[in-house]
Design a protein around this nucleic acid. Structure first.
Length: 562
RNA sequence: UGGGGUAUAGCCAAGUUGGUAAGGCAGCGGGUUUUGAUCCCGUCAUUCCCAGGUUCGAGUCCUGGUACCCCAGCCA
């Protein structure tokens, strides 16, 4: 029951420690500034959580700061809906960004000024080639690119053209601003990358103020420098962009003044098996109706995990367990499940809920009597208190907890044998009632009144109790809906399936149990509250719940070792 | 094919002046238990992608291979 408090160490911490030791950033951890820079073009997922906890965690550990910045330079794919969801998700995870939320679009004026000074210094030019020509002249891995015929325009001409771009005088696709670097560079990103393009679309933050938008590679280093970022952390695919990141900042040196000279470091993105973690594919799952939305409990999105019953602490713990390194990896879903089980085992109150009810009639129970039994909320934590559970002569048990015949391995109720009703009495099954199809529809039993809180006496020759099963009193039980979730895909790596990831969707990823019966204390449980349904798993209250009919989502089942 | 990266157990991952392979997840064996849960104890790499070399000593250094990932958007 020990809480996890250790802070993970990894290569990025080592870099910061070394920087500090060398006197960089004033040698003070307080001066470390990181940022989480999502593009608002989709919902955040578990992979983003890794980045969020890395960046905010570092700020926390060094007592530095971390900003939240929307990288909103592509208005066509972005929206306010995504901005709102991302803010909510980051907050839910428990991260507090320094100051106000930032937008790269807040810096469009500065970025524009940077472009102008680069042009003046001869480091950028307006290219009037068509997109196709630019692509063709870029060359490929084996062939160097060829210079644009517009590459040697004068600064004055470039300035005038760039101004014309900004004024909306040029059509989309007819001109771009390009960095003047090296068309023969082996790193394709350095072959005169595009810095600005014309997009005559409304921006969710800046409206119609701009019709030219800076590219990521130009925007990011400048935004980082403006915010005083010291360590700009991103994923591995941006590694080849680092020379450009540095080029931009180097060329701007002396031309613009920034509070910091940030450095970019890359780490491996998080991959989870049996799911997908790419905004494009997640969006497709939503758009194609394979799930109910971005927050469907089967989605690896932050909002999906939240609705599934995950806690921020468990997500963070999972990220700590996974670590931060540079090797591509695929983490086993079991690790995520372990993190939430560990959290919920310690913090979730216990309750009983019968998922597939089978009536159990106690024939020697005093007619009409209802007894209130005390049950602890948590077996290892008395501080969580107790609750009362009504017991009567008719209860429901789970169909899977009864068999007419079974070997000794079956630690549940068997005809003729005994079992304890959790927190209650020992009962012995005496008879079964079947329907026309031969299915057991009711079990008859007798109970031993002297077994509450103690084992049966005069027990010679009767052997041990087979086990303990959960139950709910029929008259007082609360009808509810239980949604059982399983992995969304049947393939460990859906993205690698030849027929596409949609071809390996798990048809049983959601099973709805309409007839479940919960103990009365569960009737008023608030949305998002979490419980362990004993012997079943961890569940949380879904927002679809109504007062007279709660809905529970399976977060994760209990470990089963038999 | 040019450039940039990465290889340590089934999975993730420490290993930082070369000194004799952390930890977690999963698994396996046992104990406690009114949850087949939890908890507890034990077990789980003679070997670090491969092959050579240097060294008293190599996961760490050198040489040569191999595999996988990323880059040819006016996406991020």
């Amino acid at each position: 029951m020990t809480e996890h408090t250790d802070t993970p160490t990894h290569f990025i911490r080592q870099i910061i420690d070394k920087d500090l030791a060398e006197g960089k950033h004033g040698g003070k951890g307080e001066n470390i500034v990181t940022r989480f820079p999502p593009e608002p073009n989709g919902y955040l997922h578990i992979g983003h959580a890794k980045s969020i906890f890395l960046n905010f965690g570092l700020a926390e550990q060094y007592r530095g700061t971390c900003t939240l910045r929307f990288d909103d330079t592509n208005p066509e794919k972005e929206s306010e809906e995504y901005v709102a969801s991302i803010r909510a998700d980051v907050s839910w995870l428990g991260c507090q960004w320094a100051g106000d939320v930032r937008y790269a679009s807040d810096y469009f004026d500065v970025i524009y000024a940077c472009a102008v000074s680069l042009i003046q210094a001869g480091h950028a030019y307006v290219d009037s080639q068509t997109p196709e020509q630019i692509a063709a002249n870029r060359g490929d891995f084996t062939h160097p690119g060829t210079d644009s015929p517009f590459r040697e325009r004068s600064a004055g001409e470039n300035l005038a053209l760039f101004e014309a771009m900004r004024q909306g005088e040029l059509d989309e696709g007819t001109a771009v601003l390009r960095a003047k670097i090296d068309m023969r560079a082996p790193n394709m990103n350095m072959r005169d990358p595009v810095l600005y393009r014309i997009r005559k679309v409304r921006h969710h933050q800046t409206g119609d103020t701009w019709c030219i938008y800076p590219m990521y590679d130009f925007t990011h280093p400048i935004s980082d420098a403006i915010e005083g970022i010291t360590h700009s952390l991103c994923t591995l695919e941006f590694e080849a962009h680092r020379p450009l990141y540095d080029w931009v900042l180097d060329k701007l040196e002396g031309l613009q003044s920034f509070p910091s000279r940030p450095r970019q470091y890359e780490f491996a993105r998080l991959n989870l098996n049996y799911t997908v973690t790419s905004k494009r594919k997640l969006k497709q799952l939503v758009d194609d109706g394979h799930v109910d939305g971005w927050d469907d409990p089967r989605m690896p999105t932050i909002s999906g995990l939240r609705r599934r019953g995950y806690t921020p602490a468990a997500v963070r713990r999972f990220c700590d367990m996974v670590g931060v390194a540079r090797a591509d990896s695929v983490v086993d879903m079991g690790m995520l499940e372990s993190a939430i089980r560990d959290d919920l085992n310690r913090h979730a109150p216990r309750a009983m809920c019968v998922l597939r009810p089978l009536k159990l009639v106690i024939e020697n129970w005093p007619a009409g009597q209802v007894e209130q039994l005390d049950a602890p909320m948590h077996p290892q934590n008395d501080a969580m208190g107790t609750r009362q559970i009504p017991m009567s002569g008719e209860v429901f048990i789970d169909r899977e907890d009864f068999q007419e015949e079974a070997n000794k391995k079956f630690k549940r109720l068997v005809l003729g044998d005994r079992v304890r009703l959790r927190y209650g009495y020992v009962v012995r099954a005496t008879d079964v009632i079947k329907n026309d199809q031969g299915e057991v529809v009711e079990v008859r039993c007798t109970y031993d009144p002297d077994t509450l809180g103690k084992n049966p006496e005069n027990d010679e020759g009767q052997g041990k109790l087979r086990g303990v099963i959960h139950w709910v009193s029929a008259a007082q039980g609360v009808p509810c809906e239980v949604r059982l979730y399983d992995r969304l895909f049947t393939s460990a790596s859906p993205e690698r399936e030849e027929e596409g990831f949609a071809a390996c969707l798990n048809p049983a990823s959601l099973r709805v149990l309409e007839g479940a019966i919960a103990e009365p204390s569960l009737a008023a449980a608030p949305v998002e509250s979490r419980f362990q349904f004993e012997r079943e798993g961890y569940f949380c209250v879904d927002r679809d719940s109504r007062a007279e009919r709660p809905v529970f989502n399976l977060t994760v089942g209990l470990r089963e070792s038999f």
